[in-house]
C-alpha cells in the first residue's frame, strides 16, 4: 500500500492501542420468519478498540444495522459470543455504556429541543442543575445553541439529527452507535454534518461505530471500514483507513482517499452485493 506523500506521515488517531470495547467471536443471528429462516449474521469476528471510528458498509440486507443492534442489545444473537466493554451487551446497556443515534432523529414531538436532550438525563436521575449544564454544553457542541425552546417540527432535518446526536452525547457515554444517521439528509447537509461529526469525534475521543451505505462517507469518517455482504450477512473485508486526523472535505479528491474508496468498492463487489 503506497500512501499519497502529503498524507503519509499522519498516524491514525487512535489514542494508544486501547482496550477492546467490542469483541465479537463467531457471532451469528438467525431470524425465524414465516417462510423459513433468514441468516442475518454469520460467523462475524470483529474487535473494536477504544477511540476507533469504525464504519459498517454494505448493501441493504447485509446485516450491518443488525450487527449494530446486537451491540446495543436491541437484538439477541443466536450463535457465538460478543462483549461490550468486557460485559454482555445486556449488562453494557444496563450500565448505559453507549449512546445510540437512529436513522431518523426520533425526537419526541411534544418535547422542546432542550427537553429532548434532557430525556436520557431525566431517566438516569441527573439532578436539575447538572441537566441544564449538560443540555447547554451538548447543544453548543452540535451548534444548536439558541434552539433550546424550539420544538422538533420547527427545525430542519439536519438540525433535528444534530439534536439527536446531542441527546446521545448528553449522558457522556464512551461509545457512540450510529445507524445511518445522515442517510435521510441531502448531500450538502450530509457533507456538513460529516465534517462536524469528525470534529466532534476529535474533541470527545469517543469510540464510534457508524453504519452507512455511502462509500465516500465511510472513507471520510473512519479509521477502519468493515465491508459486509448479504445472504448470509457477514464481514468480507476490513480495510484500514489511515487518512490521518486532519480531514478537510477536500481530502475526498486526493489519490489516497480515492484509492481507499476504490478498495471498499472492490470489497463490496467481491461480496456479490451488487450483482
Amino acid at each position: 500500500m503506497s500512501a499519497a506523500p502529503s498524507l503519509a506521515p499522519a498516524p491514525v488517531p487512535v489514542p494508544a492501542v486501547g482496550d477492546e470495547v467490542i469483541a465479537a467471536r463467531k457471532l451469528g443471528l438467525v431470524f425465524g420468519t414465516n417462510d423459513g429462516s433468514v441468516h442475518a449474521l454469520k460467523d462475524v469476528d470483529l474487535t473494536i478498540r477504544r477511540g476507533e471510528f469504525v464504519s459498517f458498509i454494505g448493501p441493504s440486507g447485509c446485516g450491518k444495522t443488525t450487527l449494530l443492534r446486537v451491540i446495543a442489545d436491541l437484538e439477541q444473537p443466536t450463535a457465538g459470543s460478543i462483549t461490550v466493554n468486557g460485559m454482555t451487551p445486556g449488562d453494557a446497556r444496563r450500565a448505559r455504556a453507549y449512546g445510540y443515534v437512529f436513522q431518523a432523529a426520533a425526537l419526541y414531538p411534544w418535547r422542546s429541543i432542550a427537553r429532548n436532550v434532557a430525556l436520557p438525563l431525566e431517566i438516569m436521575g441527573v439532578p436539575k442543575a447538572e441537566r441544564a449544564r449538560r443540555i447547554a454544553a451538548n447543544l453548543d457542541l452540535v451548534g444548536l445553541s439558541g434552539f433550546e425552546k424550539k420544538f422538533p417540527w420547527q427545525l430542519s432535518g439536519g438540525m433535528q439529527q444534530r439534536a439527536s446526536i446531542a441527546r446521545a452525547l448528553s449522558f457522556d457515554p464512551d461509545l457512540l452507535l450510529m445507524d445511518e444517521p445522515f442517510g435521510a439528509l441531502d448531500e450538502i447537509v450530509r457533507d456538513h454534518l460529516n465534517a462536524e461529526l469528525l470534529k466532534l469525534w476529535a474533541t470527545t475521543r469517543k469510540t464510534v461505530v457508524f453504519v452507512t451505505h455511502s462509500i465516500p462517507e465511510a472513507v471520510f469518517l473512519s479509521t477502519r471500514i468493515v465491508v459486509m455482504s448479504p445472504r448470509p450477512g457477514r464481514i468480507t473485508e476490513i480495510i484500514d483507513c489511515d487518512l490521518g486526523a486532519e480531514r478537510p472535505l477536500e481530502i475526498r479528491e486526493t489519490p489516497r482517499f480515492l484509492e481507499i474508496a476504490h478498495r471498499v468498492r472492490e470489497g463490496l463487489r467481491a461480496g456479490h452485493g451488487y450483482e
Partner: peptide
C-alpha cells in the same frame, strides 16, 4: 424507534409509560 430509544437508556416500564 421511540421505544428502542427508551431501551437504550435502560428506562423502566414506568419511565417509558410516563415519558413516552
Amino acid at each position: 424507534m421511540h421505544l428502542d430509544l427508551m431501551r437504550t437508556y435502560n428506562a423502566s416500564g414506568r419511565q417509558t409509560l410516563a415519558k413516552l
